[in-house]
């Protein structure tokens, strides 16, 4: 049994667990930045910027995730390569679209055709991160936009009464207070994000779902030293346990953060905390 679980192939699934965790860590941060930018744009008093922010939120929220995932990864890749093609090979005369083929000059390939395989994999990974960030950023933007509006108006008026500028009010009063309103929505998003990681598999990244299927598939003794029947059920069961444990841990962590953020806030829960302390 132990031998089964330590073959080179199994090392690949352990690595893919790390890949998923790293993806989550990076995506959570970038999506939050995208979301913050989107929310700030949406409530901007400069109309075109506000339209841009609201348009971004509306479009991404309205289109099925999976369509976006499949579209963005292809479109981003083609877009980057066309851009590089234009910059690096101005003398290239052959058309880029030859029938079905998409042909850019070798120098414009991203990553370069002769780059080692890990570069290709890293590139695909970051395309995935960018796509995840764009999609989840829109949802985060909507949550933050709502949270910014939920901060009691009296707080902002008080800040203005103290003579704070618009910018000072935003950064010193509004932003610190909005998190408590944003957190329930953001924690939902985090859970959805965890559950969305198997979509990586659709983007051609060999994630845990790919390896669970590959490793669980039945193996005949001719091609392996470790033959077995159809074990996919057990591998997928392990995935189930992994995801369940992961979301449970996240829930506990998020509860703690919520308790901290509530401290001293003008909300019902904050009020309850204050009363319990006295």
């Amino acid at each position: 049994m132990l031998c089964y679980l330590t073959t080179g192939k199994h090392m690949a699934i352990y690595v893919s667990v790390l890949v998923v965790l790293v993806l989550l860590a990076i995506t959570a941060v970038t999506a939050l930045i995208f979301g913050f930018g989107g929310a700030m744009a949406a409530r901007s008093r400069f109309l075109p910027l506000s339209w841009f922010g609201k348009g971004y939120i509306a479009i991404v929220r309205g289109v099925p995730d999976i369509a976006f995932f499949l579209f963005f990864v292809l479109a981003l890749d083609i877009g980057f390569e066309m851009l590089r093609h234009g910059i690096k090979c101005p003398d290239w005369t052959a058309p880029i679209w030859q029938g079905n083929d998409f042909v850019v000059c070798p120098e414009a390939k991203l990553p370069l055709g002769n780059a080692p395989q890990w570069v290709h994999e890293t590139y695909a990974f970051f395309l995935a991160v960018l796509t995840f960030s764009i999609v989840f950023g829109a949802f985060a933007a909507n949550v933050l936009y709502g949270a910014m509006r939920a901060v009691p108006r009296a707080q902002l008026e008080t800040a203005e009464a103290y003579g704070m500028t618009h910018r000072q009010t935003f950064w010193r009063v509004l932003v610190p207070q909005m998190w408590v309103y944003a957190l329930p929505g953001l924690s939902n998003l985090w859970m959805v994000l965890i559950k969305a990681t198997p979509l990586l598999f659709l983007l051609g990244i060999e994630d845990i779902v790919y390896w669970a299927r590959e490793l669980g598939g039945s193996k005949t003794p001719r091609f392996t030293d470790y033959p077995h029947g159809d074990w996919r059920m057990w591998y997928f069961l392990a995935l189930l346990v992994f995801y369940l444990a992961f979301t449970r841990v996240s829930e506990i962590a998020l509860d703690r953060i919520m308790r901290r953020l509530t401290h001293g806030q003008a909300t019902l829960a904050g009020e309850a905390q204050r009363k319990a302390a006295t």
């Binding site: 690949a12 120098e107 055709g113 590959e214 091609f223 392996t224 030293d225 470790y226």
Partner: peptide, 28 residues
């Protein structure tokens, strides 16, 4: 520049034509 590296795409799930061996490499 083109001949530098040729990337060979395979499925890796169709023995004996191509499959992933115990070491995690393409084989067959």
């Amino acid at each position: 520049s083109h001949g530098a590296v040729v990337r060979m795409g395979t499925e890796g799930a169709y023995p004996p034509y191509n499959f992933i061996n115990d070491k995690g490499e393409v084989d067959g």
